[in-house]
Nucleic acid binder design. Sequence first.
DNA 1: ACTTGGCACTCGTCGATCGAGAGTGCCAGA
DNA 2: TCTGGCACTCTCGATCGACGAGTGCCAAGT
Lengths: 347, 347
Amino acid sequence: MSEDRRLMVLRAIVQDYVQTSEPVGSKALVERHHLGVSAATVRNDMALLEEEGLIHAPHTSAGRVPTDAGYRVFVDRLSAVKPLGQGERRAIGQFLQGAVDLDDVVDRTVRLLASLTRQVAVVQYPSLTRSTVRHIELVPMGSSHLMIVLIVNTGRVEQRVVDTGRVLADATGEALVASIRSRINEVAAGVPFTVAATRLRRLVGEADEADRAALEAVVSALGDALVEEREERVVLAGQANLARAGADFPRSIGPILEALEEHVTLLRLLGQLGDDPELVSVRIGSENPVTGLQSTSLVSMGYGSGSERVASLGVLGPTRMDYPTTMASVRAVARYVSEILDENQAT
Amino acid sequence: MSEDRRLMVLRAIVQDYVQTSEPVGSKALVERHHLGVSAATVRNDMALLEEEGLIHAPHTSAGRVPTDAGYRVFVDRLSAVKPLGQGERRAIGQFLQGAVDLDDVVDRTVRLLASLTRQVAVVQYPSLTRSTVRHIELVPMGSSHLMIVLIVNTGRVEQRVVDTGRVLADATGEALVASIRSRINEVAAGVPFTVAATRLRRLVGEADEADRAALEAVVSALGDALVEEREERVVLAGQANLARAGADFPRSIGPILEALEEHVTLLRLLGQLGDDPELVSVRIGSENPVTGLQSTSLVSMGYGSGSERVASLGVLGPTRMDYPTTMASVRAVARYVSEILDENQAT
DNA sequence: ACTTGGCACTCGTCGATCGAGAGTGCCAGA
DNA sequence: TCTGGCACTCTCGATCGACGAGTGCCAAGT
């Protein structure tokens, strides 16, 4: 018995099951795929595949269904990522080109992914931790308040309002603001967050008595913004696609929707990518540590400007999904988004 | 036959049905509510209510279920918004107090509303059209690019990058940027968007030849930002609650999820509030113009800083919902959010 | 003029039964 | 090692009947 043929059978089972969503039997298999053997032979192979835990029969007399392990073998050894068509690629590029700012890029991306794959799309905002400060702007507001606007190299903008406890509207006040502005930009602009945070703290130590309080207020607010855990955000789209594929989920889709609202765990999931950031990562069913998502698969990939991977995006669907096509879409979108960020970076 | 009693019966039916989610019969009614009459009498009243189109029997021999019109009467005439408990109110206030910026306020609000009502929560971002410009900041980037940061009185921040076509890094460049900054802030700061847009355009006309091009680039980008339709954004939470209430939806919840992803139509819906902005607006089932949402009710209310209503928030659930409690929650949250915005406004 | 108890009737729900069909496992032969 | 054949298993869908909740209506009571 050739191992090769057994794998061919597995591949055929996966393909048929993905297409029809019904357990596939030996007879149907030999009809639809031209394996050069009879149904009985296929049955023997199936028995072995079942022993290996790659397929499984829902009950004694139904066809076979791939197990999570079966999909794993399929993804790793039996399928090639099928490249997207020319037209499709161009459509992606054009759709994303129109974006006007970072929010818009993320928003468009997540919708694009959802409609492309007809599944739930997840896009993580570029993380701050690996980012650098581009510029910090101070805007006086009211008599003693200051709005701090932090501009990040990924195009993201954070803002905070602090009370400096000093009158800023007069000439001395304006001079103070200008001085603080230039001092903090001098040490922080163009520098990674972690470095910026320590340098800013040092700056406070060196300041003379008069400015100390105001500078301290600004720096502490900036420090908050720099370490802020809310920095990590995700955006979702295509939840409706879950309902469409409702039959694929043993229980209802409720637990899945719940899991999707736990952005924190979603982020952790997206963070755990495979070894090679250039590769699409696939987590299948029970490989997935999150309760509620164990009947789903997550296809994800990192993206970012330059060679730096600043965040991830992906697609979540039933384990019974068309892996090659989905992987192709995710990869293509991740690359386009990276390109867009690169361009923004350059400006 | 007293009309009063008939309405009592309707109220009892609504209350029981909301609680049990099963058609309610005459016998169960007299047992659970102490109407001073017998089941037969109630049956007569029911027959009349059915003629009026306020209730409806799913089939010949089942209990009665309120129609959309029945809920309408219940909401308008038979129920009082039940005030929230002391502890609940305090919890709301504390939860929202912790917010660090506008994004955070909106995010917390939508989650709070979802968990409070156990339904789908919808929060619209404060709209730009009714807002005023607080400040416009210009940040040079690269040699000829300028980042424009528009700070709105609601705390929102928009940014754009434009190419001025001029070298900005040298002394003349810096002077130019400073001059543009002060000129646009002079005409636009503190002014409503619509006014700001026209004043800015006039400014371009008055500028002398040398600065014209750069100023024009900035103003046109600002104009975009000011009229931008994407300005209208909504955030959702609690979609999982739909699955929990799955039995309430005749078809699957798919169409509802789809409708929820159409942010544009959602926004239109939120925009159509009742006459009095201080009142909670309720749209019940088929009163709702959006396909896919006709088996749901939307409970919404405007919010905003000062007396100006800048946006809406609300809750979407099955028509079979606990209206008094939901309305109370929506109203309480809307008021707290308004307060928070007021405080931010003040600073 | 209402209200009430009684009663026949309607209809959907639930459970059991049964036949059809798909698919398997295994065996004997090539 | 493959193949054809065959008996067996198990699910699915349809059918049927008993059950019960709930109604509508009527005649009598207040």
